[in-house]
């Protein structure tokens, strides 16, 4: 993988300039290395692999709460960055990422509507970002786990691959939001249902510890948020490619 990164980085830079063109040139990707183990999963994404192999379109639906967006209209939140990166890495496949925001809803409240969403949009892959609202409202972790399990089952039955995404690492609110039961339960559910888990929490903490980002920052500006989401989108694209076992050969 390492030897590839140079070759990949070039097109990414280019893609950033092109897709996020109206943005600024200084939006060069931050250095945000993610250790390999955070980008691999024992579980796989057979539907995604098939879609890419057969050259059909790869439709990805992101179901998430507020932390799946930032307050801008351009595609600078991670779903937009995911789309840009995947289009770049999989030029032979039409990639579409759409997002369904479920603001201020717990996993239990989202589950009911999931099947309908999938029936309407028929995505190949659903990236379900959840846990934050549950942690903030300290929902019973057992209920949360049950809801996540139910949601995964519903999505799989409706014919989509699923990737779970957990909470953001938010050092500022650590004294106020107890994340760990929700992180643990998502890990358990992902393992039980054999669904890849994109460990956003661990990844962001890694960046914070490495000094890539100062997540304690009080800055009111959007710059930090944009850079973090850019890195998240690229890491997520990498994660999906790895989990679907898309060989570099298929990427070109």
């Amino acid at each position: 993988m390492k030897s590839n990164s140079g070759a990949i980085l070039g097109p990414i830079l280019l893609a950033c300039l092109l897709t996020a063109a109206p943005a600024r040139a200084e939006d060069a990707p931050s250095s945000c290395e993610v250790p390999a183990y955070l980008l691999t999963s024992e579980s796989s994404l057979p539907k995604v692999a098939e879609a890419v192999k057969s050259g059909h379109s790869l439709d990805i639906l992101v179901v998430g709460s507020r932390s799946s967006t930032i307050n801008t209209s351009d595609g600078s939140a991670y779903p937009g960055r995911l789309q840009a990166t995947l289009r770049d890495k999989l030029p032979a496949v039409p990639v579409n990422v759409s997002i369904e925001l479920q603001v201020k809803k717990t996993a239990g409240e989202v589950v009911g509507g999931l099947v309908k969403l999938v029936e309407v949009k028929k995505p190949t892959l659903v990236i379900w970002q959840t846990g934050t609202v549950d942690a903030m409202r300290s929902i019973d972790p057992d209920d949360f786990r049950a809801a996540v399990g139910e949601g995964i089952a519903a999505l799989q039955n409706a014919g989509a691959d699923v990737v779970l995404m957990n909470l953001q690492y938010s050092p500022r609110t650590e004294t106020m939001i107890s994340a760990s039961p929700y992180l643990d339960n998502m890990r358990v559910m992902a393992q039980q249902r054999e669904v890849p888990l994109f460990d956003r929490f661990a990844i962001m903490r890694q960046w914070h510890d490495q000094g890539d980002f100062d997540l304690f920052s009080t800055s009111h500006g959007l710059d930090l948020a944009k850079r973090v989401h850019d890195c998240l989108g690229r890491a997520l694209a990498q994660f999906v490619i790895e989990a679907a076992h898309l060989k570099p050969a298929q990427q070109n």
Partner: peptide, 13 residues
């Protein structure tokens, strides 16, 4: 004091 847009959701706490 704290209005980092990255964490607008978490600030809901």
């Amino acid at each position: 004091r704290f209005e980092n847009p990255l964490y607008s959701e978490e600030m809901g706490i």
